[in-house]
């Protein structure tokens, strides 16, 4: 029994995280009925499999096993010493938080400046900043963190905010979450995925979310908080889906 409870708590926790912008409330509202995680999980695996197979046949290369297959591309394995260093395999640790700030830094400079002005009220949870590499943290101070924080707002700043909230703090945020939600719906309707009212499973949300975050953060960062991005957000999403399922 206890196990089940913990399990479901985790799942709920996970589900909430799929909506980064809604993840802040302690209360988890269940608007669309219970989710069959098992089923969604299977579906995700299946879709991922489909995508992998498409990749594999396009390049006649098994990316999973790292082995070439017969086909249009003539593969050969060559020593790293004979190619530019750039092509050598690399690794990245998966903690989004560690790279988030850099990510934002690298790509949304001018966007960030606007963001910074728009979100000066946001609390600055030092714990988060400390997780960055040194320069990330230092830069965060200037104009970087605002963008990142929006996305990676975990439970830590929650308590902080509770003690320092002003009513105005909520305006931009609520606006954003509304935008996002409406955009999310648009995309669900627009995509070929069968309409399903349960909250999207993690992976799909990710890929879909990608369209919005990509557009709003990287390319049109300026309007991130202006609340006028409805249409463009949706079109960005469409392109993201196209790429996922190409």
């Amino acid at each position: 029994m206890a196990n089940v409870d913990i399990q479901s708590m985790w799942e709920r926790h996970d589900a909430r995280r799929t909506f980064p912008l809604l993840a802040r409330t302690k209360v988890c509202r269940n608007l669309f009925g219970p989710v069959d995680h098992e089923e969604l999980n299977c579906e995700m695996k299946r879709r991922l499999q489909e995508i992998s197979e498409r990749d594999q046949s396009r390049w006649n290369f098994n990316f999973e096993e790292n082995v070439p297959l017969p086909g249009n591309y003539e593969w050969e394995e060559i020593a790293v010493s004979t190619v530019p260093t750039f092509y050598t395999e690399s690794m990245r640790n998966g903690k989004a938080r560690t790279v988030n700030a850099k990510d934002a830094e690298s790509s949304t400079e001018s966007g960030c400046k606007n963001e910074a002005q728009g979100s000066a009220e946001a609390p600055s949870p030092s714990t988060e900043v400390n997780q960055e590499n040194r320069s990330g943290a230092l830069n965060a101070r200037k104009h970087v963190t605002p963008v990142c924080r929006r996305r990676k707002r975990p439970s830590v700043p929650e308590t902080l905010r509770n003690s320092t909230t002003h009513i105005t703090d909520f305006f931009p945020r609520r606006k954003r979450s509304f935008d996002n939600k409406s955009a999310e719906r648009t995309s669900q309707a627009g995509s070929s995925i069968p309409a399903e009212v349960t909250p999207r499973k993690r992976i799909r949300c990710r890929w879909e979310d990608l369209g919005v975050s990509h557009f709003s953060d990287h390319l049109a960062g300026k309007k991130g908080r202006s609340g006028t991005k409805g249409a463009k957000g949706a079109s960005g999403r469409a392109s993201a889906i196209a790429f996922t399922c190409k």
């Binding site: 998966g94 990510d103 790509s107 990710r206 990608l210 369209g211 975050s213 990287h218």
Partner: peptide, 11 residues
Amino acid sequence: LPLSTVREVAL
């Protein structure tokens, strides 16, 4: 997959 990675791919 970290969101940042997904975003980078998109970029």
